[in-house]
Every structure is written in C-alpha cells, then in structure tokens.
Amino acid sequence: MLEISNLTATAGEKDILKGINLTVNAGEVHAIMGPNGSGKSTLAQVLAGHPSYEVTGGTVHFEGEDLLELEPEERAHKGVFLAFQYPIEIPGVSNAYFLRSAYNAMRVARGGEEVDPMEFLDVMEEKLKIVEMDDAMLARSVNMGFSGGEKKRNEILQMAVLEPKLAILDETDSGLDIDALRVVAEGVNKLRRPDNAAIVVTHYQRLLNYIIPDFVHVLAGGRIIRSGGKELALELEEKGYDWLLQEALA
C-alpha cells in the first residue's frame, strides 16, 4: 500500500529525515517510536503534505501512485489521513459543517454525490458512538475550547467519518489520561479492517498496549535504526532508547 524509499526531508535549513525506508501493506499496523527530535512527526507530516517541510530526495508511493506529487487534499482523497498531534482550532466553523465539508469533498472526489445535512446526521450518529462523543460537540467550533482528550477524540471521529485506507496517528496518545487513551485506542481498533493500514507514531509504549502493532520501527537521527515485532516496544519500554542509539553508533 505504502512504499517509502530513501526519503529525505528538510525543515528550513535543517535536515530532518535522512533516508527513510518503510513498506506498509494492507491490514498492517506499524508503530514508529523514537526519542524526541528523531523525525517521527516530520515523517507523519511529510506524508500528509505539510508545506513546512521540503522533500529533498527519495520516493513515496501510495497504491502505486507518486504521493509526493499530490496536494494535501488529493492525498486525503486517495485515502491518506493524518491524526494531528496538535489539532488546529478553527473559530467560526462548526465541527458539523467541517466534517460534512470533508465528507462531501471526499465523496465527490471519489465519484459519489454530496449528502445533505439530514443524511449526514445519520452518518454521524454511528460514528459518534465509536469515540463515545456527545453530539453537542458537533455544534461547537472545530476544536475551540476542547480539552486535550476531546481534541484527540475529534481526530479519531474525523478518521471514522473519512474512512481512510492509511491512517497516520501522530502522537495521538500525548496529553491523554488513561480513560481518554482507552477510548481513542478502542476507536482506532474499531476502524481496523483487512483492507486498511495504520502508522502509529508514539514516544511511549503505553499506547501499544491498546493498539497492538504488527511491526515496530525505531527512528533516530532521521533514520530507522531498528525494526522488529511488537516485543521490540516492550524492550524499549524496559531499557529506553539509549542502548539502541549506542548500538547504532557502534
């Protein structure tokens, strides 16, 4: 589904990604772990097309297509979704309108027809249950005055509405208490299907107790320095990142 080959990227003058190689197949969950500043979030944002980063080399193919050639909205239409680490507040635009605009844009891009507000409410009813959210949240401006947990739930709600093929969760666990973490993780699990895939970016192993990965990759200094199964996460939890960094240097 996703093939990243020797990807390099910069933010301003700074080299952040220094040659990423990663293959994600349908049905798989990949965890990307690593110390702060290793480039985890940059990788997530580059895949979504964030304008602050410049890709300087390598390729990214999504279902055979050159992802890097596409605008952010085109990537979304193809089925790429980024759950933001810091979801953006948009004053004056209701959550309901935002979600419906996105849902309809997606339907139109995929050759379908727009739904009207009443039809969309029916769609939402089911989706809200996935993240245990109250429909009162729909009337509020996007993320305005939301708590940290509410913002993250709102990200997963968007994911539920847009049904991406590839979901990239950027530190979705950061700033969450254990109850919010459970709700968010269960939401992600409910959306797992054999024909979709997820990349879970996280600093801590904690989230991976709830979202069980098939593969764990350790990113450090802009490169993947170790890949393994879910047991690698537990090893990192126990021993920290230092031993791996030492090994990588050795």
Partner: peptide
C-alpha cells in the same frame, strides 16, 4: 493545511 488534509 488542516482542512486540506481532510480533503477540503
């Protein structure tokens, strides 16, 4: 960017 990333 947030809105575009949602396909808008």
């Amino acid at each position: 960017f947030y809105m575009k990333s949602r396909g808008v």
